[in-house]
Design a protein around this nucleic acid. Structure first.
Lengths: 337, 337
DNA sequence: TTGTATGCGTTATCAC
DNA sequence: GTGATAACGCATACAA
């Protein structure tokens, strides 16, 4: 089972090694009939181009570094990964995932910078990356693309979800149903960098949108990292006076456990309380939660295309992009009581 | 920002390139003080070993192929990935993910076999891989490790969750609470290979365990891929006569939406109906679901260690391993009505 | 369009 | 314990 080299294929096909190389790297530069002969020989010998050798010679690594906050299993991160993969994989790139669960991971990453010479582009996701870190990454001379980064300074491209527009829609939906007392539930946990920004942006979006409605009040329910957010939210929602008639949650993940328990505390949804989430995770549709859909896969795919474009030379066009959230009307919002 | 080569570091440190190489690859073969000098020089020049070059010369690719059914975002798959990464990343390996969402993906993979010469080990997860495919992968002469594979034939190692033991615990728990009429809800969708096996194994486990209790009956509720499983399960659970007093779900994912809707149909949990899930996904604890915990991260880590051992030479020891599920007692089971 | 020659940056093998 | 040297397998400039 000696792994066939490019030489062996060349011999089998009766051509030179360069022709075999070209057949795989730049098929259009080789005569169709030659190409077919080479492909047949390759198939016969079970030949696959060695990525290591190709990488060494070409100076590329065919690896993309994907930096993200928290862990890869959070819904947003893994779906961004899927989007990246849907573009990078067919293009011949592997994705190296670097999870920054805590300050230590992060410190180690930025001192070792294992990405140097080992990535053709860097994708930074939901990351409160500081200017120092940006400049260190830029020193690597590879494209640096952001996804939902708080700032776009120093990036070669970026794509963000439009939290403001999303919350604007949420508020307009609720006010059109007659809601005036609206609560907003969010978390501020230290070890979930992604959530910090979305919490902030979404709150701002809600407050901004509320300015157009002088009679609307927004009550903030803040769940700090130490406590169980479900309990905090339930306690507040059931005891506030005057009681809100609608509540927006920073994320579906936060909303769903509360939605489940509300009946136990005498609140019928949507009769007594309208509920809106954010994200549209799979459980949201299964539980009928009205929510704002964002598609992390799309963000990932857009970022990947920008990266590929930037690797080709000039900066991607457009460099910065914003994607709208979509209001999914389901069973948890109704006319105010 | 010319990327420093190993030569440059050697010059800076006043040693030969070989010594620099050794400092990174086999630090114990080099004198501590020499090592410090080299490390200092490397740090100064921002040097990192080129994985491509190292790979070419050493004959390894430093890549692991991770084949899984369905998509990477399903809870089980992404957590297996985390487990793999926790072992492979520190060991210097990157993971290339190959998602087999459908027959076409799979066919393409096995005809192209992009993994040939480009992976040092193959991990196959939740895969109804057939003998032909196993032998094609084995031809690559790299370790082949399975995770929750239906068969272990031809694999160099494998680790599986003990579905039978898990369901045995579930049944004993329920019978000890006085339940005698127990339902089991499962899905059979074509495009979710993982679920097919777990559905089958878990059902068998339940039936097997029930043999010890002649007065216990197991009613199967099968949700085919075309219909909404939540509706099917609810319809059956609320209309069966005699009504079951407890229900086991194949997965938490299946259980939770049903759990949410049961009160709407007049069934209080656990007063009228006890509910047990399987997996212990994050929402299970948030919603108080009694369930069987499995830890895909552990399976991934175990598989990764077996792979590394097998790459070293002999077969891993033990070659095949089974991990127990753990019963998490929460709020959805109680004494039979 | 295809073949020839060369070198990418590292590691393995051997001396020393 | 360290240094010199050759080779890993391919892609590219250049020649044909």
């Amino acid at each position: 089972m000696a792994k066939a080299s490019i030489q062996a294929v060349a011999a089998e096909a009766g051509v030179s090694a360069s022709t075999v190389s070209r057949t795989f790297a730049k098929p259009d530069l080789v005569l169709p009939e030659t190409r077919d002969r080479v492909l047949a020989a390759a198939q016969k010998l079970d030949f696959q181009v060695s990525r290591s050798a190709a990488a060494l010679k070409s100076g590329q690594s065919f690896r993309i570094a994907f930096l993200h906050a928290d862990t890869i299993d959070v819904w947003f991160n893994v779906n961004v990964y899927r989007g990246l993969d849907s573009v990078f994989h067919p293009a011949g790139y592997d994705i190296s995932v670097y999870s920054m669960s805590n300050a230590q991971d992060r410190h180690r990453f930025f001192t070792d910078l294992p990405v140097r010479r080992n990535a053709d582009a860097v994708i930074v996701c939901s990351f409160d990356i500081d200017p120092d870190e940006v400049s260190r990454l830029k020193d690597m001379n590879v494209p640096l693309i952001g996804i939902n980064t708080p700032s776009i300074a120093g990036l070669d491209g970026a794509v963000c979800i439009d939290d403001l527009q999303g919350m604007h829609m949420a508020l307009e939906h609720l006010t059109s149903l007659g809601h005036r007392r609206i609560a907003y539930v969010y978390t501020t946990s230290d070890d979930a960098a992604r959530l910090r920004f979305s919490a902030e942006n979404r709150l701002q979006g809600l407050l901004l949108a509320a300015k157009a409605h002088p009679d609307v009040t927004i009550e903030q329910i803040r769940c700090s990292g130490h406590e169980d957010p479900t309990s905090t939210a339930l306690a507040q929602l059931t005891t506030m006076t005057p009681a809100p008639t609608a509540v927006c949650f920073q994320t579906d993940e936060l909303a769903l456990p509360v939605l489940y328990r509300l009946p136990q505390y005498g609140l019928q949804v949507p009769r007594d309380l309208s509920v809106i989430g954010f994200d549209d995770i799979p459980f949201a549709s299964k539980m009928g939660l009205t929510t704002l859909r964002q598609r992390p896969q799309d963000l990932g795919a857009i970022a990947a295309r920008k990266a590929i474009e930037a690797m080709g030379g000039p900066l991607p066009e457009p460099r910065f992009e914003t994607v709208r959230a979509q209001l999914m009307l389901r069973d948890t919002t109704a006319i105010a009581a």
